[in-house]
Design a binder for these strands. Structure first.
Lengths: 403, 403
DNA sequence: TGACTTTATCCACGCTGTTGCTTAACTGGG
DNA sequence: CCCAGTTAAGCAACAGCGTGGATAAAGTCA
């Protein structure tokens, strides 16, 4: 159930359309800088987009940043209760001395602070440390087909302020929508010094090139095709900008298992994947096309042209329970293929009947995966509710800080 | 097509059954040491096996090892042609000085050596470096239900020697099979000094706990249930030992795209996944259960109890082409969900009719994914042929060295 | 032949985490 | 009440990492 407070709708829509060079030719989508120079593998059938597996070297700065992110991440995971240096040392594998130094730096930066003392375990009691939530902020935005959501999140990933308003992505075109986006972000950040804003994450319907920040064709919105979204937003707001597919962003809307999926059932069906602790985007950053998994070759024809896609079966289901069951079957496939232990359900279709989806997905999972080797799988509804995508987009910015 | 030379069959089977304490109670499968101590997340429905996301700290030793592995990996990727220090510096992001130091250390260890000079680009010609393949060896073994494969691979991942022999996994029981395994490995390593052997990787049918190295139930072979396979092998051979599921091991049998799958169609159907450059095992190290993806709820009943599993549909297919088409449909789902750009087909069922599978999978992929956003996907048959699983198990050991 | 370019190394340096030791802070027995 | 024992955290010296500037080596080209 969506427990967190959600954004109040606020219908106002300024924005003046003017033409800028944000468009790119759909032909040259790939960034040549992304390809490694020393790529002389002698395999016969070489995949086209063998993007740098980035086995990149690390220097002392990278080492320090890595350890700082590690510690910060552990402090965040501890929540308001706090953690002691001793616990940080044990969990990170670093020595107590190293932890002390790192904690000192983080404290000087204002990111963490002492938060009381723990019970003594026979000697000097541990000093507890916790995150200072509001020294840095991340902005998250969701460009929906009919809705724009903009919010501000603190370091713990909690939403502090936000607005949601109706738009017409296809009809208005990029300039008007982006101008509106920019105005709303400026309102959110009005009383904040710029150096305390880490950046902005913008979630959009796919497919897109996440790395380059360029949209591909957005079904039914030709004006957006080839838009250099990251550049466009970064230039207007002068903030570090990250672009992400909506369902992928959503998986970062809350902390969770290192092997989890966010199943986003809105106008389309997508899945955001975190596997082995890392967000998975795939070779062309299009991973998570969950809606067009074939679940029944004899099923109804889908708008994608194929037959028996999950999305088509779901749309054709006679009752809400039947629709939820279809989703459950697809989720069972997902869990089994990737060995997930957490599935978060979200998107408007789910939020319209959360109990039905929760119950049916759990039921199908229990039936399809009776073997204890595959249990338990935690199934829940996105705590951020309708803000999950935008909050996850903000989480994408926070992720830079936490490793 | 399986081009590489494959292991000659050699039927001999010593091995004396004696009882050792390699068994573990199936109840205490999880290793308590794997769980983080500072795990006090306040989520309500916490997944049971939220194994340490391991945001572990790094010290200077780890930094050095990481950079050495990075460089070594780049040298390996360059193949026999070699790479220069300058290219290594550019690809790794390290300075030329750092590369020089690292190269010096690696050369002293005998892992790499100079391999001629490149053409001058206007000044002193570059000194080319390449891997010395046979200074270290990795052993790979596949415990099949009816076959034992044991081989030795050099640093480039090429098989140097190996044997394959029939066994009866269920009938013989662990001790006889493991004794045979140990004898065969000793034969393979007879003329090698121990310090040049990096370790052994053992692939087995799943499910298993890869991290703990403990088998779960092996269908039809109750004597193997709960066997501490890693400990048992490590104790007998006194070598670093890694255990892996067969299909997961196979994905490491050759270098390839950072987003690829090895589809292993043998007695069962499994998939080994490399996503984002990392092998994916999932929450309970059971990822890749590809055979029991539901592809047609109205289909025939599977031995797993459900209906319409890929495996059941495949088995029920009237012709080899129809069977290959089923696999193609399942692979199309996989490619679309994870955005893969490379799929390798292997296992005896594929190797029995490689052209049929290759053609059908390619055909279905082209039909199911007409959108250029999803192309090209390189589809091939495992170059290592029947040795893919064992070679991948050896690759698992090599992976330690290459990062 | 000599100027120039590129490659690779030498050496001093700053910064990292580590080690050994000291100080701080609390528990609990006599 | 005191003091031994225990645990937490900081201080100082240190080894090892990659970096930056200078330099030698080995080619090209006019």
């Amino acid at each position: 159930m969506p427990t967190a407070a959600s954004i109040p709708d606020s219908p106002d829509s300024p924005g003046s359309p003017d033409d800028r060079a944000d468009r790119t030719d759909p032909a040259d989508r790939t960034d040549p800088a992304d390809r490694t120079a020393t790529d002389r593998s002698n395999r016969t059938a070489r995949p086209a987009s063998a993007r740098a597996a980035a086995p990149t070297g690390a220097n002392l700065t990278a080492l320090r940043d890595h350890n700082a992110a590690t510690v910060l991440s552990l402090v965040r995971a501890a929540g308001a209760g706090g953690v002691s240096r001793v616990e940080l040392a044990r969990a990170s594998g670093l020595t107590a001395q190293a932890i002390s130094k790192i904690v000192q730096r983080l404290t000087e930066d204002g990111l963490i602070a002492e938060a009381g003392r723990g019970a003594s375990t026979g000697g000097k009691p541990r000093t507890l440390l916790s995150l200072v939530p509001d020294v840095r902020w991340a902005v998250g935005a969701q460009l929906g087909r009919d809705t724009l959501t903009v919010l501000r999140a603190d370091l713990t990933g909690r939403m502090a302020a936000g607005r949601r308003m109706p738009i017409d992505l296809a009809g208005w075109g990029p300039d008007r929508v982006l101008d509106l986006l920019v105005d709303q972000v400026r309102l959110l950040l009005a009383d904040l010094p710029g150096e305390r804003v880490l950046g902005i994450g913008v979630a959009s319907p796919g497919p897109l090139d996440q790395h380059a920040g360029v949209l591909h064709q957005v079904t039914g919105a030709p004006a957006w095709q080839g838009l250099r979204l990251r550049e466009a937003v970064a230039r207007r707001l002068e903030l570090p900008t990250v672009v992400e597919k909506d369902s992928t962003a959503a998986v970062l809307s809350a902390l969770g298992s290192p092997n989890r999926a966010f199943v986003h059932l809105d106008q389309g069906l997508g899945a955001g994947l975190v596997l082995g602790g890392a967000v998975q985007r795939g070779a062309r950053t299009n991973a998570g096309e969950f809606g067009h998994q074939t679940l029944d070759p004899g099923g109804p024809r889908c708008r994608c042209g194929a037959t028996g896609c999950v999305e088509a079966l779901w749309a054709a289901a006679p009752t809400p329970v039947a629709a939820a069951r279809i989703l459950g079957e697809a989720v069972a496939n997902l869990v089994r293929l990737l060995d997930l232990d957490e599935v978060v359900l979200g998107g408007r279709a789910v939020l319209a009947a959360p109990e039905v989806y929760l119950a049916e997905v759990r039921r199908v999972l229990a039936a399809r995966l009776p073997d204890p080797d595959w249990q338990p799988v935690a199934v829940s509804v996105a705590p951020a509710g309708p803000d999950a995508v935008a909050l996850g987009a903000a989480g994408l910015v926070l992720a830079r800080l936490f490793g």
